[in-house]
């Protein structure tokens, strides 16, 4: 259902945009335009454009204890950040996290959705189970997984105790902590992804599969040649949402690792928050925010330029 709404809206808008270019506005139109656009422009200016420009402005200065801009340093903050190994590792950690979360969320979600789309008795139970994480809040999920990861009393520690295996330090070793956060995020994301993909799979016309059955195509062939192309707009939508969500990931990191150990999970957004509201270094965090904006804009552009063309609407 969601699929149809997202696919149909986009092309219509494009058509409108093309038509609009042909118009000339007369004085009366300008008057109405300002009345209708005015309020939203005012709100946008106050809450979006002004903060954005102010962030850019602050990033060109040093800020003192009170958060005021004092010394103009030009692009010095940017040069310092980009040459700091600490920040670069934050960037690569964020990229690793985004890629891992997106790939795992979409592929596992697709697998579960494909399984749950089979028409079998009692399948409704699985559909409910798979989508249940949609109702779980970030705080609850974090605490739930913290109990599992606890090295003394956690579920994993108890399991390895019974099996006589060494206890894995999930949250204290830098590599494991990254996986702990990835696993938790993917688990959180799965419910929503599953539901959207299940909806998409179910709205693929059954006649296509029936025709394929008559041709004698295997179910694997049907999955790759019918299901995937037919749900590709939804896959595109889901992966975009997941990528943006992963870039913005904050709650789980704050509750599970606080960016540690040794900054192994100190993603960009968490870093911005910590530099501003823990350390009070507004210049540094503004600079980071601008860099993050550029990165996300770049990815969004790439996605729409290249991926959109491959998507079968």
């Amino acid at each position: 259902m969601l699929k149809t709404s997202t696919t149909n809206v986009v092309p219509e808008k494009k058509v409108e945009a093309k038509q609009r270019q042909g118009f000339r506005l007369n004085a009366n139109d300008k008057y109405y335009a300002s009345i209708f656009l005015g309020p939203s422009l005012l709100v946008l200016t106050l809450f979006v454009f002004y903060p954005m420009l102010k962030t850019l402005y602050i990033s060109l200065f040093l800020t003192n204890t009170l958060g005021n801009t004092t010394v103009f340093t030009g692009l010095d903050n940017y040069v310092k950040l980009i040459s700091s190994p600490d920040f670069l590792s934050s960037m690569s950690v964020t990229l690793l996290y985004v890629v891992a979360v997106t790939v795992l969320t979409v592929s596992v979600g697709l697998l579960l959705a494909n399984l749950a789309s089979q028409k079998l008795p009692g399948i409704g139970i699985f559909r409910t189970l798979y989508s249940v994480t949609m109702g779980v809040s970030v705080a609850v999920a974090a605490i739930f997984w913290l109990f599992i990861f606890n090295p003394s009393t956690g579920f994993f520690a108890l399991m390895s105790g019974w099996l006589n295996l060494p206890v894995v330090n999930w949250l204290t070793s830098p590599t494991n902590a990254m996986w702990a956060v990835i696993i938790t995020t993917v688990w959180m994301n799965l419910g929503f992804t599953f539901l959207i993909l299940l909806g998409a799979i179910q709205s693929v016309p059954s006649t296509l599969y029936e025709a394929a059955d008559v041709e004698g195509a295997s179910s694997r062939y049907q999955f790759f040649k019918i299901t995937i192309p037919m749900i590709s707009p939804t896959l595109f939508f889901v992966s975009t949402i997941t990528i943006i969500g992963a870039f913005k990931s904050f709650g789980l990191i704050d509750l599970i690792t606080k960016g540690g150990p040794t900054n192994a999970t100190n993603m960009l957004v968490y870093r911005i928050y910590k530099d501003a509201f823990y350390s009070g270094n507004y210049a540094k965090s503004s600079t980071e925010a601008i860099i993050l904006t550029v990165i996300i804009a770049f990815f969004t552009l790439i996605q729409f330029k290249f991926l959109e063309k491959k998507v079968n609407y």
Partner: peptide, 23 residues
Amino acid sequence: FIDYGSGASAGANQTAGFLSDKV
């Protein structure tokens, strides 16, 4: 030695470990 890491959860984890005779 057992490492419980840093942050708020580390404090809670080590208290749990101490109270359950693990450390």
